[in-house]
Write a protein that binds this DNA or RNA. Structure first.
Lengths: 347, 347
DNA sequence: TGTCGGTGCTGAATCGGTTTAGCTACCCGT
DNA sequence: ACGGGTAGCTAAACCGATTCAGCACCGACA
């Protein structure tokens, strides 16, 4: 029923040559001398038999499996993570590689199990990805392997790390507001604990850009990165009579909560208040008005990580990928200032 | 530097037995007679050397790779898809298997390439997943392999197909409204083309349940499954003076657009209009009021598919997975009826 | 005493490739 | 006629496991 795969031996016999010769032809080695005529016979036979080399057998001998492991903490179950993985897979295919995908769910034992299972299957290297740009502690098993860190960094060096250029992203967000005419009534929404590099870097990008423009943040509203806490925090902030001209939200979910709070306060986006955000998730184009947001470059991140992993001369160290602003409808020129923000910095 | 992996030969030598004996011990075969003493020596040696069998070598001999292929059309880049994959991976690990993940992006050539690449690496079977519950045309290559269809069906039989119980989901949605007291002023939002089984089945579940309750849908609003078209269609519907007591939206994105339209019409959820939806995505708990939605059981879908694939006695045919209602805040009793829905059925 | 059966183990073949080492036939120069 | 070089090919080892076939030993039984 299931037609057997044909082997190199089959090809060799049909072409009337030895397995060795067939192997040389199929792997295209030019250092061994094969007559053009024999080469054609082998290629012809391979075509006729629809020959495909058994990669398991090849790997066993060469130790090259054309396979890499993709390990993440919880990245695979996050909404946007799919694109990171899809782009990694597509890039790997372009290099004739396939991806074993594993998710540790943050459990070091699961992670260890995944790594060992992949090594047992001869993976030639790993991409280790994290959901949040942060510092990670690497399993010793990984350190002895070709490795690229994706969306995270590690104290131990000696391998490439691919991260979004969060600083530049922060700058883009700030510049979008400055360009629209906002200056000293810009308020940040979110929180930036030290270990979340995405947050701290975005903040640096924002503040430095404002400093260069001769101004600074008018305040910041502490809030977890979810809609509900953001809604509550921003509602309270507005209820206290504060009237900033713009909010910078540290991600789209915060922006959603901020939208809801602004709306409930009877204000309009962007005429009363502008909003810019980070992530450029689907959500950004679903809300009304559509949200201007700095995109996380998932596609490029995945592509860069795999390209680096499979490049024998890969450069170690930090590789920053540009974050582009998706300009939509949530930013407009500020109205004439009415009520200034009172000392609202809670941090 | 990189300590070499130890081989079965190393273990055998350290234990003072032949490779054959070591192999029998390690694979736990009881049909070959090994003395308890020799067995202990081998196990001890394996422990000391941290021996792990080379799965490539084993597969080459046994044709059992402990590896399966997961192929999807565009599932991997959709928000919720991550959970499907993560749950498949977790289940596979429980069976000592690893997943090659591939995404065809709907391109048959890419799909073919992925399948062949996976076969070259000796996968023992495939899960073929689709984003939308629909009928698919299977590559001939797949049909000769152990195969489970996930979230899609095929005319060719002979393998298990795992799908959400969309009909039951429709019933749950309708029952939630009936239980709250809604009866003959319920309107559907979405569209149900024949090839999208999720839609047609959900509709059947809804209408049959209403029929049993002695009523029927008061109308249906045609709309693509995205927020903006839903917003426009529902806005128009409400502007025409229609005042249903409840909307059933065919997914959460439609529900978002519906929320926006209801809000713009000056109406309140759930006091003026109740809303139930399908998907139970993150969005459902982010909107205000929180959305009551029938969940797509991603975790169970992935688990079931892998369990079936790796069960040698797997049952062919359709496996339906229950869809549970996540009750939140968007359903309440209808107010006294005021303006009835005018013949609004546009389909 | 010879043989039969069971216990406990091992040598060698095998999976399907890659790669090393070497063989043969032919041409050329002397 | 012979030595040497080279083009073109192949036998066999090898990667690390599984597994078939069989060997050595021992006790029991006729």
């Amino acid at each position: 029923m299931t037609r057997q795969r044909s082997t190199l031996m089959d090809v060799a016999q049909r072409a009337g040559v030895s397995r060795t010769t067939a192997s040389f032809v199929m792997t295209g080695r030019r250092d061994m001398r094969i007559s053009g005529e024999a080469e054609q016979r082998v290629l012809q036979a391979a075509r006729e038999l629809d020959y495909r080399p058994n990669l398991l057998a090849r790997s066993l001998r060469t130790n090259l499996s054309q396979t890499v492991g993709f390990i993440s903490d919880v990245v695979a179950s996050e909404p946007f993570a799919g694109r990171l993985i899809a782009s990694s897979i597509a890039t790997a295919i372009r290099h004739d590689h396939l991806l074993f995908v594993g998710e540790s769910a943050g459990d070091p034992e699961v992670e260890q199990l995944l790594i060992r299972s992949m090594l047992d299957r001869g993976v030639g290297g790993f991409v280790y990805a994290s959901l949040y740009t942060r510092e990670v502690k690497l399993s010793p098993l990984l350190k002895t392997q070709p490795l690229v860190l994706l969306n995270c960094v590690s104290r131990s060096r000696g391998f490439p790390m691919v991260v979004p250029d969060e600083f530049g992203g922060g700058r883009s967000a700030a510049l979008a507001l400055l360009a629209a005419g906002h200056l000293d009534q810009i308020v940040l929404v979110g929180e930036t604990p030290d270990h979340v590099l995405a947050g701290t870097e975005r903040l640096s990008g924002i503040t430095e850009t404002l400093t260069v423009a001769g101004t600074e943040l008018a305040g910041s509203i502490q809030s977890l990165w979810w809609p509900e806490p953001a809604y509550l925090a921003v509602s309270e902030f507005l209820a206290a009579g504060n009237r900033p001209t713009a909010f910078i939200c540290l991600n789209d979910r915060i922006a959603l909560g901020t939208y809801q709070a602004i709306h409930d306060a009877g204000l309009t986006i962007p005429t009363d208040i502008s909003v810019v955000s980070f992530d450029d998730s689907d959500l950004a184009s679903w809300v009304r008005p559509k949200l201007t947001s700095v995109a996380i470059p998932h596609i490029e991140l995945g592509r860069t990580a795999i390209d680096l992993l499979l490049d024998p001369e890969r450069e170690h160290g930090l590789h920053k990928v540009e974050m582009r602003l998706s300009a939509r409808e949530s930013v407009a020129a500020p109205k004439t200032r009415r009520v200034p923000v009172r000392s609202a910095t809670q941090s």
